[in-house]
Amino acid sequence: MIPTARYMLAMKLKSLRISDFSKGEQDMSDVAHLLRVLGITEIEQAIEILAEFFPKSAADADKQRFVLKRLFAGGLVIDAPQYPRTGG
């Protein structure tokens, strides 16, 4: 079974490791790729997906909003691979 892009985004947002530079940078890159794959262009769209799978984490999503704000402001260059769009 393969997780959907929506579920992967929710898991990545929930487990962001921004205090560890190398792991945090990879997490942010993964989130950026998933945002692009899903066509998400606003912070609250991503938080809504987080809430679908992890409602408690979405209720206190300051860290996620901080990261998403940076990503949408152009903090990372997104060179996303092609992911399958089925199921998600």
Rank of each mutant, 00 (worst) to 15 (best):
T86E: 15
R85Q: 13
S57R: 08
V67P: 04
A80H: 05
L9Y: 06
D62E: 14
A59S: 15
I49Q: 09
T41C: 00
V37Y: 10
D60Q: 13
A61M: 08
Y7W: 01
L50I: 12
I49E: 04
L76W: 13
Q64W: 03
P3R: 03
S22N: 12
D62G: 09
A32C: 03
I18K: 05
K56V: 08
K56S: 14
E48M: 09
R65L: 09
S19C: 00
R65V: 11
D20E: 13
L50V: 08
R65Q: 07
E42G: 00
R70L: 07
L71E: 08
V67Q: 04
F21W: 12
Y7C: 00
K56H: 11
P81I: 10
D30L: 07
Y83R: 12
T41E: 11
R85S: 08
Y83Q: 14
K56I: 09
G39L: 11
E25V: 13
L9Q: 06
F54S: 06
Q45A: 10
L50W: 02
Y83P: 00
H33E: 13
Y7I: 02
D27R: 06
E42Y: 03
T4E: 02
F21E: 10
K56A: 15
R36H: 12
G87S: 11
A51G: 10
K63V: 15
V67K: 02
I78R: 06
F53P: 02
P84I: 14
G24D: 11
P84Q: 14
P55I: 14
S15I: 01
Q64G: 05
K69F: 13
L76V: 15
R6T: 01
D20G: 04
P84N: 10
L38A: 09
K23P: 02
L38K: 05
D62V: 12
V67Y: 08
M11R: 02
L9F: 00
A59W: 06
H33V: 15
Q64E: 11
M1V: 04
A32R: 01
A51M: 05
M1E: 02
G39Q: 11
F66E: 08
A80Q: 06
E42C: 00
A80R: 12
S15P: 01
I47Y: 08
L13S: 01
Q82V: 13
A32Y: 03
Q45I: 05
H33N: 08
M28Y: 07
S29E: 11
L34I: 12
K56T: 12
E52C: 07
L38P: 07
T86K: 12
E25D: 15
G39E: 03
K69C: 00
A58F: 05
D27H: 12
M1S: 06
P84L: 15
R65G: 01
G88Y: 13
R6L: 04
L71W: 04
L38W: 13
Q45H: 12
I78T: 15
T86W: 15
E48D: 14
F72Q: 04
K12Q: 01
K56L: 14
I78G: 05
M8G: 03
E52A: 09
K69L: 08
Q45M: 11
